[in-house]
Design a binder for these strands. Structure first.
Lengths: 232, 232, 232, 232
DNA sequence: AGCTAAACGAGACGGTACGTCCCGTCTTCAA
DNA sequence: TTGAAGACGGGACGTACCGTCTCGTTTAGCT
C-alpha cells in the first residue's frame, strides 16, 4: 500500500513523542487556532502527521455516543459527525470498531483500577470485582467492553484484537495479584492459569448479562469458591 | 399512489392456468396440500395458521447461512432468500434475530446433550464440558450461541430473551447434575448458585474467545477447582 | 450490533491493489477520472460533489425502465439496479419519483418542441398539438408525464413539483404563442389565461385517456373552438 | 373459472333485487344479528349469494379511508380491516382498485348533480361547474376521481374501466345539456364532441392540480370561451 | 522559497440490510 | 357457496451504515 509509515492497529495510539497520552485538553496556551480539540475553528491538518486534536475529538465523540446510544446506536458515521472528523481519518487510525472500543476503554482506564494488595487473595479479589464492576457501571468502559466482545463475534480481525491484544494485557495485570498469592502460599502455582479463566469468565458472564449491579454476597461466595478451589 | 399494483401476474405458477377449476390438484391422499418442506412449487399459506413447512424451511436456511457465513454474514434478507420465504413471515414468528438464533440452537438440541450421572461431580462436569464443546464445534449451535450473545448486546429485547428464556432453561438442566452432587454430599447446597455462574462463565469465555478446541488438561483443572471450591 | 461489518472486501476492483498510491490512474487529459457514463469498472465518488456520470446513468435507466414497464413497473429499486447506482444516491438527488419523472421529461425535451410561428394561432396550435402528441408517443416523455400526474395525486410534495415547477415552466413557453396572437389582434389579452387552461386540459385529458393517436379532425375542431372562443 | 355466476366488473354493484341501493344504514329494525352493516356481531355468509351488508361496509370503509388518508394511504388491507371484511371478499367483487373508486364515486352520486336547464348554455355550464366542484370538494368523490385517474395510469384494465365505463356514462348525462343547446340553436351540433372534451379537460386539469376552489371569474371566462367557440 | 507529502474535513459513491407495508393468492372453518 | 380471518411468497419502500474514493486545503519537512 501507499502509506507504509503509520502503524494503525498495534500500538496504543498515543505516542509519547506527541505529548501526554490522554492530552486532548491540556493544550498549554498554544495559540494554534486550529488543530486543537476545543478550538472552534475548523480543525485541519497539521502537516504530514497525526493530529492529536482530531484523535482526542474522535475518542471523545465515540465515548459519548456509546454512552448515549449504546452499541446498537454506535456508527462510524455518527462518530465522524460528532467529532467533526472525516470518516477516512477515523478509518486511518482505527480500522475496526474494535480498535475504537479498545481506545475508549483505555482512555477511561486513565483513571484505572489499582491492583489491591491486602495480604489475602479473597479480600483482594472481592475488592477487585467491586472496583471493576463500579468502573464498568459508571464509565463508558462497561459498554465499550460489551461492544468489544460483541464485535469480536463478527470478525476474525476484531476477535484477534480482543484475544491477542486486549485480554492478555489485562490478564497480565491480574496475574500480579495471583502471583502474590502464590508467594504467600495461598494457592498452587499450577492453578493460576485456570483461576484466571474462571475469574474472567465470571466477570464476562455478569457483564454480558448486564448483571453487574452490586451483589456483595454472591460475589463473595464466588470469590471464595475460586480461592478455595485453587488452594494447594 | 406511490406503489402501483403490479401487472396482473397471470395464472398462479402451480396450475396450468386451465386446470380443474376448484383447486384439488388431485394429490392422492398425500397430506401435504402444498406447504410441505420438500414440496416443489411455491409454498403458500395453509389457512389462517402457521405453516410448519415454512417454519422448517426458515430454520434450515438460517442454520446453513450461519454455518457458512457466520454472524457477520447473517441477514434476514438472505435467510428469506434461501428459505424461499417472505421477510414478513420471518418477522412474524421470530421478531428478533435472537429468536432465530435460539430456534437454531434448539433445533440442534434435538440431538441434545444428555446430563451425565457418573456418581462423581468432577467426572460429570468433565464429560459435560467435552460434550458441550464438541456440540458447539460440530453443529451450527456454537455459532448460534455466539451470535445470540452478541445480539443481546445490541438490544434490550434480545438481552431479555437470552437472560430470561434461554439461560434459565439451560441452567435448569444443569442444576440436576449439581443437585445430585449435593445429595451425594459432594458440595454444599449454598454453593450451587455460584457454581452455576462459574461454570457458565468458564464456558462462555472460551466460546466467545473461540477457544473451545479440545484441551482436556485445562478443562480438567478448571473443573477440579470448581468442585473443590464448592465442597462443603 | 445488528449489522456487523462485512468481511473485508479485499482490494478495490479498479486498481490492481498495488497501483499508484495517490489516485491518478493516469487518464491522460480525459476529464473523466473514473465516473464516466461509459466507463467500465465501478463508478464511484469524484469527491464531495455530484457525479455527473451517475446522474446520467440514473436518468438513462429510469427512461428505459419507464418505457419498458410503464408506471406500474417503475420502482426506485429497479432504477438503481439498472443504473448500477445506490438507492441513497437516487434519493439524494431526486427525493421523489416526481423529480425523476420531471428529469426524464426534460432530458428528452433536449430535442424539444419549437414553438411555431406561422402567423395564425389556429395553425400554430394545430402544429403544436401534433408535435406534442408525437413527442409523447415516440419518447418516454409521454409516459413520464402520465406518471408525473399520477404521482402528484399521491403526495402533496409531488403535486407541488408538478404545479409550481413543471406546469408553469411549460405554460411560460406556450404563452409566447398566445402573446403573438394577442399582438396580431387574434385574441383578447384577457382570454389568454383561460385559453391556456383549456389548452392544457384538452391535452391532459387525451394523454391520460391514452388517446393521443393522430386525429387531425378532432384536434382541428377543438383548436378552432378555442381560437374562436378567445377572439376579442 | 369456478365462479361463473357473478359479474364483478360490469354492472353497478347494487342489484335492485337485494334491496335499496345505498342501503347500509336503513336496516329497519330487522333483528338479524349478522349480515347487517351496522350489526356488530360477526358478519358472515348469507348463503351462496352476495351479502349486501358486506358490500355496504366495504364501500363505507373505502370512503372514509380515502377521505382520511388520501390515495397514497389507500390500501385494500386497510379497507378490509376497517370493514371487518376478508380480502378475498373485496377482490371477489372489486377486482381492481379502480372498481372500488368507481363504486365510491357512484355511492356518493346517490346525491348526484341534477343537470340544470336554465335556457342558456353558459349559465347551465357555470352552474354545472360550480356544483361539480363543490361536490368534489365536499365528498370523498373528488378524491375518488383523482385516485381513479391515477390508478388508470398504472394498469390497462383500470384505464379501460375509466375510459369505457366511467367516462362515457358521465359524458352521456352531460350531453343532454349540450343537446338542449343545440336544439336552441346556441351551438353547432358538429361541435358537441369537441366541446365535451374541452369541458372534461378543463375540469380534470383543475381537479388534478387540486385547484377546484371557488373561482367564479375564471370559470365564467372559460365557460364563455367554450360556448362562444362552439357557436354555429 | 518552493515543492512534495501526508493528514485533514467534507461528503458523494455503490452497496447491503434494515424493518414495514402492501400486493394478490391461498386455505381453513363456520354459517 | 359465501364470508371472515389471516398466513404466505414476493417485492418495493425510504433510511442507515458500510468502507472507499476524490476533492481542496493546510501544514511540515525536505530540497
Amino acid at each position: 500500500m501507499s502509506r507504509p509509515p503509520r502503524q494503525p492497529t498495534g500500538a496504543p495510539p498515543n505516542e509519547p513523542a506527541d505529548g501526554p497520552p490522554s492530552g486532548a485538553d491540556d493544550n498549554d496556551g498554544a495559540p494554534s487556532p486550529s488543530g486543537t480539540a476545543g478550538g472552534r475553528g475548523r480543525r485541519t491538518s497539521i502537516g504530514a502527521r497525526r493530529n492529536p486534536a482530531s484523535e482526542a475529538a474522535v475518542i471523545a465523540a465515540a465515548r459519548s455516543l456509546l454512552q448515549e446510544k449504546g452499541y446498537a446506536g454506535f456508527s462510524i458515521d455518527e462518530v465522524a459527525r460528532r467529532a467533526g472528523a472525516g470518516k477516512p481519518t477515523i478509518y486511518r487510525w482505527w480500522p475496526t470498531k474494535a480498535d475504537l472500543f479498545i481506545a475508549i476503554y483505555q482512555a477511561d482506564k486513565a483513571a484505572a483500577i489499582a491492583m489491591p494488595d491486602t495480604g489475602s487473595l479473597a479480600r483482594d479479589l472481592r475488592t477487585l470485582v467491586n472496583a471493576l464492576w463500579a468502573f464498568w457501571r459508571t464509565t463508558p468502559s462497561g459498554g465499550a467492553f460489551r461492544a468489544l466482545i460483541a464485535e469480536a463475534q463478527t470478525n476474525p480481525v476484531s476477535l484477534a484484537a480482543l484475544r491477542d491484544r486486549f485480554v492478555p494485557q489485562h490478564m497480565c495485570r491480574l496475574r500480579e495479584v495471583f502471583d502474590r498469592a502464590v508467594e504467600r502460599g495461598e494457592i498452587a502455582p499450577d492453578n493460576v492459569e485456570a483461576l484466571v479463566e474462571l475469574y474472567f469468565g465470571f466477570n464476562w458472564f455478569r457483564l454480558l448479562m448486564n448483571r453487574i449491579d452490586d451483589d456483595p454476597d454472591h460475589v463473595a461466595r464466588a470469590v471464595q469458591m475460586m480461592v478455595e478451589g485453587a488452594r494447594r
